[in-house]
């Protein structure tokens, strides 16, 4: 482990054991997160982004799922080897997470102040009053006006954007080294989305927090990430510095995402949301049976016999740029 990396994920595999068989939600994913870096993880719905994030924190549902392989090293420590109590001490303190739905992610019957302060008390042991002071400070930091009044309020009294700011305030209240943001702006309308992303980047600069930014929106990636992991069907198919990815997207799936056209979604229009990206033609493969060969083959214009028979290994194409595709040469020529 290099001292640079705060988090190293190696061959992580998380499976769900369902009546329809074993769902390989995450199937051998590796990536590093440097201290203070913003890493984007992008992919279509169902490709395993959230499960990857929850696996890092060991928050996957224990009744149905298990981490079946790989390792997660945080600050030199193997998280899988920690006891549940040790893991709890890390959650919310060293690694914090914010979720997609600010509407449902905050507890409706507890005040905003309580929900921030309890995290502070839990991990720093300061008295409740001091934690409430900290809560006010955090609300100022995330630019919620009138913090004194707001900490007394309940989530339903806040707008969607403010709730997500409150979530950020909770997550950053103990100065975590890693912030995992799972689609933090997907549920928000466009202007609010931009404000929240700006806020996260500003706080990241101020506090030096490394961020894993999970999204299905390449626009968000372009605005925030330094490095990008592209996931498909539970695997990493491409990884590159953000400039390289946009300058030379190499995996056919990444290219598909880039060329995807915004669909005019009536509901999304009404809600004032950014139109969702048109999915690439074809459907995501079912994850409840083993996939022979390249998972993208059924949807790929470059697919060959070999693609269908044998899974392509991740190959480095240039510094920091790696792709899992047999036909990279042909793909690049086609550009």
């Amino acid at each position: 482990m290099t001292a640079m990396n705060i988090l190293e994920v190696r061959d992580l595999a998380t499976h769900f054991f369902t009546l329809d068989g074993v769902v390989r939600a995450v199937d051998g994913v590796s990536f590093d997160l440097a201290r203070g870096e913003t890493l984007g993880i992008v992919g279509e719905s169902g490709c395993g982004k959230s499960v990857t994030a929850l696996s890092i924190l060991r928050l996957i549902p224990p009744e149905t799922s298990r981490i079946v392989g790989g390792s997660v090293r945080f600050d030199g420590r193997d998280l899988a080897a920690l006891s549940e109590a040790e893991m709890r001490a890390i959650r919310g303190h060293r690694i914090a997470m914010i979720f997609q739905e600010p509407m449902t992610s905050l507890n409706p019957v507890l005040t905003i102040g309580t929900q921030i302060a309890e995290n502070v008390v839990r991990h720093t042991g300061v008295p409740w009053r001091a934690a409430l002071d900290r809560a006010r400070e955090m609300l100022d930091l995330v630019k919620i006006a009138d913090a004194r009044r707001r900490i007394e309020e309940y989530p339903h009294q806040l707008s969607g954007g403010m709730r997500q700011r409150a979530m950020i305030a909770i997550a950053l209240s103990c100065n975590p080294q890693v912030l995992i943001a799972d689609e933090p702006t997907t549920a928000l309308d466009v202007t609010i989305q931009a404000q929240i992303l700006d806020l996260m980047l500003e706080l990241k600069e101020k506090l030096g927090t490394a961020i894993i930014m999970i999204t299905h929106d390449l626009g968000v990636i372009a605005e925030t990430a330094e490095r990008v992991v592209v996931m498909y069907a539970g695997r990493k198919v491409e990884e590159a510095p953000v400039e390289a990815l946009f300058a030379q997207p190499t995996h056919p799936y990444t290219r598909g995402l880039m060329h995807a056209v915004p669909r005019l979604d009536a509901d999304a229009e009404i809600a004032g949301r950014r139109p969702r990206l048109q999915e690439i033609p074809g459907i995501v493969p079912a994850l409840n049976r083993p996939i022979a060969g390249c998972a993208f083959a059924p949807r790929c214009g470059f697919a060959t016999e070999r693609c269908r028979a044998e899974a392509p290994p991740l190959v480095s194409t240039s510094a920091g740029h790696a792709v899992a595709c047999w036909e990279t040469a042909r793909v690049l020529e086609a550009a």
């Binding site: 997470m97 739905e101 507890n107 507890l110 839990r122």
Partner: peptide
């Protein structure tokens, strides 16, 4: 099974607090 319970767990709160405050009050 609600999202806010996952949030409470993501803060590393004690099981007791998650059950008796976050869940029971709801």
């Amino acid at each position: 099974s609600q999202d806010y319970i996952r949030t409470a767990n993501s803060k590393g709160l004690a099981t007791r607090r998650v059950l008796l405050l976050h869940a029971l009050k709801n």
